[in-house]
Amino acid sequence: MAAVKEDAGGRGGGFEGEMEVEAYRRLFPLPYYERHLLESVRPDARPLSSARDTSIAVGAVSSADGSALVKTGETTMLAAIKLEVMSPSQDSPDEGSLAIDFHMPPICSPTVRPGRPAELAPVLSKQLSDVISRSKMIHLKELSLVSGKAAWMAYLDIYCLNADGSLFDVALLSAVAALAHLHIPLVSLNDEGRIIAVSGDPSRKTTREVVNKDKRKLSLNSVPFSLTCLLHKDYILADPTAEEESIMDTPVTVVLDSLDCLVSLYKPGGAALALTSSLKECVSLTRRRVQELRSILDEALQSTEMDED
């Protein structure tokens, strides 16, 4: 029976031929993909080890203090940071705090309903906050205002606008871009001990001392970037789409930072077992991707800085 179906799917002549191929794709997705993998190509004409086109646009949301919109293929994520003032805890009076939350609103995918939140959302949220806090990318001391009395609480919210595979990669990239774009507003301490905003207009007389004149942007040291690969028999597919993820269920996510340190390697089960050679291959694919992403991010940040000047 398989042979008959294969013949029907192989012919691609005219309108009738195209219908056969689409039906074959829906009915037998795994054999459809395996025939492509034999030729070392995927249905969207990408080679196995290359990722989709990525674009980053910072400053998309003007009401937030830092924001970024990242698109990889069809997966789109919007990250935005809002700063609020809090009083720091007793054991770390010099540190601010960063709270990361990942949302999957119903617009992103037909499987998410308004009453029932997506299963992936809390898992990805925890993974993102683990990676960002453990990667030592930002120093929480930079978020401090007045030692012991006031510090910044940064709420980083990431919304998935379209879910088409590799959600963690795109979410991490958008979080990193938003943090890189963050503009900390000028503030000063008023008489009651509360922090108020101060406009940057030099013609306005400010009787209050500006508290953080020199700390306007966060300094990022080792920035983490990631790549998700799928393992299937002997093949390794980089940057899968949602369709590929649903058929082949063994993802491996590798997060490397700019100093080539492994921040996280996440392989949550899956039918294929990962041999050391496959892991090394995934790590080297990630290294290449880190270079690509770093140049795309630098370009995006530079173009906004030029616009602002």
Binding site: E84, M86, P88, M153, I195, A197
Partner: peptide
């Protein structure tokens, strides 16, 4: 639990 925080009061 996240500590209580207040938003900046913009110069009205």
């Amino acid at each position: 639990a996240s500590p209580a925080s207040y938003a900046l009061r913009r110069h009205q």
